[in-house]
Design a protein around this nucleic acid. Structure first.
Lengths: 218, 218
DNA sequence: CGGATATTTGACTACACTCAAACTCCGTGG
DNA sequence: CCACGGAGTTTGAGTGTAGTCAAATATCCG
């Protein structure tokens, strides 16, 4: 199938010109708590997380931090289309990333950009209108989805997942303080919705109840 | 210039096939407080606001509302790429919108999508980490940018703009209550940063101070 | 003028924040 | 092996910012 572009200046999301030199796929390894600035993007570079966990963070001039998204394996980020994204990528654990150019990233870009936009809007709803417990519950639903493995037991289904972000990271994601996050997790545990013996290994006992606590169900 | 697409299924942000029937540009007029659902988008339809003011809203199942963005003339929205956007567009005043298909929207899509993503991330920072007064100040800076006309006076520069969202709309945008929004506006007025005699006509007296109050400057 | 809607202002409350201390979990080195 | 130290987490007590409820005022429009 053949497409004709009327204007060569509408670059960023355009398909790569067949003659242009392709940016090779290169692999990047990050240790926990390393940082990858995304500001330089000119619409040429995209990143695919193949393993680990990455946070997209923004900082205010006085140092306040907001985590815009927590990213799990299989997701793309760094759509620094036009201008700078003002976001940094921070690894929450050992992570590997593939750097792609337009040519190799092209096919998945629309879906990934759309997914990102949708997530940012859901997150605005969380930050603007949900209570502390609802926020924490919503976060757990999301992380279970991105990092969870379903485990079948004799009585019901559990979901286990590693909680890569610390309490402080969760706080910066959810617009709370780390103490409040800890208290909400405690509450959900006391209600037998989740359980954990180590703070970074979560088991969801009652997924429906968790979604209810997250404000996702009546 | 000629581009070759390897896969016809990577549709949404692809350039329109030259042979395909183009969706004509049609114009939509909205009265204040009308609603345009965006959920149906299949990556074929995009909207350009040519006049007025539109809010992108999300609702929780219990009715809580979050305004994800306030949109002024010249901006595009409705990138319901893959799946539904779960957002509605609500007019804040008399507005006219152009409905575009892929063919006519194509050139501006990358910039507009990037702008939207950037705004959503800034908004997350606002909702998660800014105080009430900072949020209101940030909103005024943004709205002045989208709706303001610079007016030169003998002493300094003022910016006047019509405030299309009500106090309640601002509250739903900023994650506050309408009373808090009103109190913050009052405070900024008492500090002579802004002034208004009618509640929907704002004049910014000291733009630098407003940006400082918004947490955008040291 | 009258009635509806939006805004302002006040008094009180509560949810989440701040500050502080204790506890757990690790890895390291004596 | 145990002691030590550091980072992260939990828990508690008290505070403060923004929310709630309510009433007064302003604005708009027939």
């Amino acid at each position: 199938m053949l497409f004709l572009a009327q204007d060569a200046d509408i670059a960023p999301l355009m398909p790569p010109a067949t003659g242009a030199a392709a940016i090779p796929i290169t692999s990047i390894s990050l240790k926990p708590r390393e940082t990858l600035p995304l500001g330089t993007g000119n619409g040429e570079l995209f990143y695919l997380l193949t393993e680990g966990c990455i946070a997209l963070t923004r900082y205010m001039c006085d140092g306040r931090r907001q985590i815009c998204d927590i990213i799990g394996p299989g997701r793309m980020f760094g759509f620094a289309i036009q201008g700078e994204s003002q976001c940094m990528a921070e690894s929450m654990t050992y992570s590997t990333i593939e750097r792609h150019g337009r040519r190799t990233a092209w096919a998945s870009l629309p879906d990934e950009v759309g997914r990102m936009l949708n997530r940012q809007q859901s997150h605005a709803l969380l930050l603007g209108r949900k209570t502390a417990t609802e926020r924490v519950a919503t976060a757990l639903v999301d992380l279970a989805d991105q990092f969870g493995r379903r485990v079948k037991y004799t009585r019901g289904r559990h979901v286990d997942f590693p909680l890569f972000p610390t309490r402080s990271d969760l706080a910066d994601w959810l617009g709370l303080t780390l103490e409040t996050v800890s208290r909400c997790l405690h509450r959900l545990r006391r209600q037998r919705v989740i359980e954990f013996t180590r703070p970074e290994l979560i088991r969801i006992l009652d997924f429906e109840e968790l979604e209810r606590a997250a404000g996702l169900r009546a």
